[in-house]
Each structure stands twice: as C-alpha cells, then as structure tokens.
C-alpha cells in the first residue's frame, strides 16, 4: 500500500532531474502564455504583445491585464501550492492516497471561507484566506494531534483524516442547501474550483503567503526524504520526527487553505501532481517537490485556459477540467508504475 512512498531515493541522476525541471518550466511558461491568448474574446498575438509591453498599436488592456493575467498568476500559484501540499502530506502520513482533499483540509478551509462569505457578505477579500486557514488548520489539527500523541499506523491516520473531511464536507453541503441556493450563488461556482471573476485583488491577498510557504516547503524537502526512510531510521539520524511532521503538516495545510480561499476546491491536483512527479523523477523529494509544483502549475493553468476556450462565453470550472484532463493520465501512470515500484 505505502510502497510508493516507502521506496525512498531512487537512483536517478540529478542531471536528468534538472533537465526535466527545465523542460517542465518551459512547458509551464508556454502553457501560461497560451492561457493569455484563449477566452471568450479572440485576441491576436500581436495585440497581446502590444498590451503586455505597452507597445503602440491595438491593445486589450482590460481583458489581458485585468482578467487573464491575474487568473494566470493565480492558477500558477494555486497549482504549485496544491501540488506541494499534496506531496508533503503523502510523505508525512506515509500514504499515497493522502492529499489535502482526502484528509479534510480543503473542506475545512472551504467551510470556514463559506461561513465568512455568508455571514459577513460585506467583509473585505483579505479575510478570506485567513478564515480558510483557520478552517484548514481545524481539520488538520485533529490529524496532527492524533499523530502527535498516539502512535497510529499510517492507514489509521489517513482514515481519521477521511472522517474529518466528511464532517466538514457535510457542513459545506448543509450551508449550500439551507442558505444560498445554487440559483443565486457565487459561492457555488467558487467551490467547484473556478478562476471566474478572479482579479488582482485575489492575487494581492494570496501571493505572499503562497510564495513564502512554497519556498519553505522546498527548503524542507530533505526532511521529507529522512521521514520517508521510516520513523526509526529518521530518529536514528537525529531527526525529531513528531516535531518535523507537525511543522511539515502545518506548511502543507496553510498552502492548501490559502489556495482554497482564492480558487476554491480543486481536489485532484494535490493527489495527482505528486504522483506524476514521482513517476518522472522518483521519490527523492529534493527533485520531486519542484517537479510536483511545476506539474501542478501546468495542470491548473491548462485547465483554466481550456475551461475558457471550450464553450465561450460559458466557462467550465478549472477544477472540473483539471480532474478531466488529469484523471486519464493519472490512471495511466498508476497502471505503468505499480508493478515497477512494488518489486
């Protein structure tokens, strides 16, 4: 079951990893630029260039600078955050099925953000990530506390996470049924993981925590490698395992919560991106984390672009599309990986 994570450092060359990271980065940039060019209003490349670099000639200032660009930035930030969060949680809980969604962080964050929106509709945007973090932490706290004081097996931890997730999800469903009917609700659209209506205001409240937390996550990657060796070995190597776990889970929780606050629930990214990354560069977190982040960015930015291009002027939520694009790829990877890594 936990074989995928237990296989620690796969002997693959660092050079190959770096080349892969560079290639992925190029892909991400290409996808991001492509996402600037698609949407309900067709805009010629020349106009996009004119607008981006304030050159003479025709420009589309609103659509490019105030609609597509902030969405692109948010898609990149949230994609990386969710992927990193998922990778950390999978390593800490030592369960390949774990993700911020599965252990209830996303639902907890969504519930608290939703309560804030419904109870204080006039509250400024800034408070959304904060409320989401409190919700995500509340959900994660159960898992953290249990992990800290009771020496439970990985599978029990994950199951407790699942149970906590269901409780918060029930809360979200209840709120959506009793208070804001789907007919009138922006929350409903936001919850499906959508970048519709996102502006620089959303970037302003989320970029700093997301960038800072992502940096911390990448810096902590070597500790994940130690934890992945197993608790006894890690302790033997001088790591205070319970404390490190707590710290890592905290970072993962905050990453997922802040992204839920700005782009809603995109459950699949946190599960999928780390597995894709592991397949590409192996289990060493030093390489795997940045690759997972890039894969997450790529998935969300593509999903948002396709969602805008597919049936204009109607938009399909990026969360829905990310699952649709990602799932077949994910299944393929699982089918081709299992036998290799179980051996």
């Amino acid at each position: 079951m936990s074989a995928v994570v237990h296989v620690p450092v796969r002997p693959r060359s660092t050079l190959r990893g770096l080349v892969l990271i560079a290639a992925l980065a190029v892909l991400v940039i290409a996808a991001a630029l492509w996402s600037l060019s698609v949407g309900a209003v067709p805009i010629p490349t020349q106009t996009i260039v004119n607008t981006l670099f304030t050159l003479d000639g025709e420009q589309q200032t609103y659509i490019i600078m105030k609609s597509r660009l902030p969405r692109m930035v948010l898609a990149l930030l949230a994609g990386a955050a969710l992927a990193l969060s998922g990778a950390i949680i999978q390593a800490v809980i030592r369960n390949p099925l774990a993700s911020p969604n599965i252990i209830g962080i996303n639902s907890g964050a969504a519930l608290f953000a939703l309560v804030l929106v419904l109870v204080f509709p006039d509250i400024p945007q800034v408070w959304m990530p904060l409320a989401a973090c409190i919700g995500g932490l509340t959900a994660a706290a159960f898992v953290m506390v249990v992990a800290h004081y009771r020496n439970l097996s990985a599978i029990h931890l994950a199951l407790i996470g699942v149970a906590v997730g269901f409780v918060f999800e029930a809360g979200v469903d209840y709120l959506l049924i009793v208070s804001n009917d789907s007919e009138s609700s922006a929350p409903m659209i936001w919850l499906t993981g959508s970048l519709w209506g996102r502006t620089w205001a959303h970037v302003a409240v989320s970029w700093l925590p997301l960038v800072a937390l992502s940096a911390v996550a990448l810096l902590l990657s070597y500790r994940l490698d130690l934890i992945a060796l197993g608790e006894a070995t890690a302790t033997g190597l001088g790591l205070n395992v319970p404390r490190q776990r707590l710290l890592l889970l905290l970072v993962a929780t905050l990453l997922a919560s802040v992204s839920v606050a700005v782009v809603g629930v995109m459950g699949f990214i946190g599960l999928m991106a780390p597995h894709i990354a592991r397949r590409l560069v192996g289990g060493s977190h030093r390489l795997m984390l940045p690759v997972a982040a890039l894969v997450g960015m790529l998935l969300v930015v593509l999903a948002d672009g396709i969602g805008r291009a597919i049936a204009p002027p109607i938009e399909v939520s990026a969360g829905i599309l990310a699952a649709l694009i990602g799932a077949p790829f994910f299944i393929y990877i699982m089918l081709t990986t299992t036998s290799e890594q179980d051996s």
């Binding site: 209003v41 597509r68 204009p312 002027p313």
Partner: peptide, 16 residues
C-alpha cells in the same frame, strides 16, 4: 451580443 449566463457572465465579453 450574448455575454453568457446570468449566473456567471463572461467578463471578457463584457469588456470587449
């Protein structure tokens, strides 16, 4: 011109 649904109108089309 249609700007999409009442629930989630296209900001791009509105701007255009």
């Amino acid at each position: 011109k249609s700007v999409g649904t009442r629930k989630s109108p296209s900001l791009e089309v509105i701007a255009s």
